[in-house]
């Protein structure tokens, strides 16, 4: 199963490192990363494979949200199929 991780917040050192550390910790593979910085605002989208995750997807999403609070960012993990359902016929 694939999931999309989005990170939105003020740009600073170590954002990608922080997120990747959490993902690696739970054995989540990163398939693709896209990011932009607009007016100091950092926006990143990661496509991940959560099939091998040591945590259930819901718990993984909670863990990332916690990490986000710690880093003062919004970090979310959502199953990819929700976006496909909404934006693709």
């Amino acid at each position: 199963m694939r999931a999309i991780v989005t990170v939105v917040g003020k740009d600073k050192v170590g954002i990608i490192a922080g997120v990747c550390t959490v993902l690696a910790e739970y054995n989540v593979n990163i398939l693709d990363i896209r990011q932009t910085v607009m007016q100091d605002y950092f926006t990143m989208m990661m496509v991940t494979d959560v099939s091998g995750s040591q945590l259930p997807v819901a718990e993984l999403a909670k863990a990332l949200e916690e990490k986000g609070k710690e880093m003062n960012l919004s970090i979310r993990l959502q199953r990819e199929d929700i976006f496909d359902a909404m934006h693709r016929v």
Binding site: I4, T6, V8, D32, M45, E80, I82, F83, H87
Partner: peptide, 12 residues
């Protein structure tokens, strides 16, 4: 694969 715009639209 969804693009970043679609993802951000949903989040918005």
């Amino acid at each position: 694969m969804p693009n970043i715009k679609e993802v951000l639209t949903t989040l918005d």
